[in-house]
Simulated assay, not measured.
Amino acid sequence: MAPVSILLNLLWIVLGGLWMAAGWVIAGIIMAITIIGLPWAKAAFTIAGYTLLPFGQKAVRRDSLTGQQDIGTGPLGLIGNLIWLVLAGWWLALGHLVTAVVLAVTIIGIPFAWAHLKLAGIALWPIGREIVPI
């Protein structure tokens, strides 16, 4: 990881990244407890790691990365994402949006606000995403 990414990630953790990553972990734990929610738990834990350290990485659709569809990027992934949206996606997206608005008030917070807006979009539709280094 580049030194700039390390610095940005440290600032990110202080400026809202830690509490939003905790939100993703809580969502993943709740999904894992239900047993039936294990596919959502895996996606939540993957995005939690990305939410904790987003600089130097990016989220991409798995089918664009591998060149072929799988369960998470096909019709079952669509159904899974719709269920996720109703159960947990909307409140995680709302948390990212609120944090982005608070950070956008300051000049130094604008890049972090932009990262939270990207994560808000991912919060609505996380299944079928893969985290890759830039």
Rank of each mutant, 00 (worst) to 15 (best):
V4H: 11
I6M: 13
N9F: 09
L10T: 14
L11K: 00
I13F: 13
G16K: 03
L18S: 15
W19H: 13
A21S: 15
A21H: 12
A22P: 06
G23N: 11
V25G: 08
I26W: 11
I29Q: 05
I30G: 05
I30L: 14
I33G: 09
W40K: 03
W40A: 15
A41P: 00
A43I: 06
T46I: 03
I47S: 05
A48Y: 00
T51C: 05
P54Q: 04
F55N: 12
G56P: 13
K58T: 15
V60N: 01
R61V: 05
Q69E: 10
I71D: 00
G72N: 04
P75Q: 08
N81F: 01
I83M: 03
W84Q: 00
W84C: 02
W84M: 00
L87Q: 08
A88K: 09
G89S: 06
L92S: 00
A93N: 02
H96P: 11
T99A: 14
T99V: 07
T99F: 09
V102S: 07
L103M: 08
A104Y: 06
T106C: 11
P111M: 13
W114D: 00
K118N: 05
G121D: 13
I122P: 14
A123V: 13
P126D: 09
I127T: 01
I127A: 02
I134S: 12
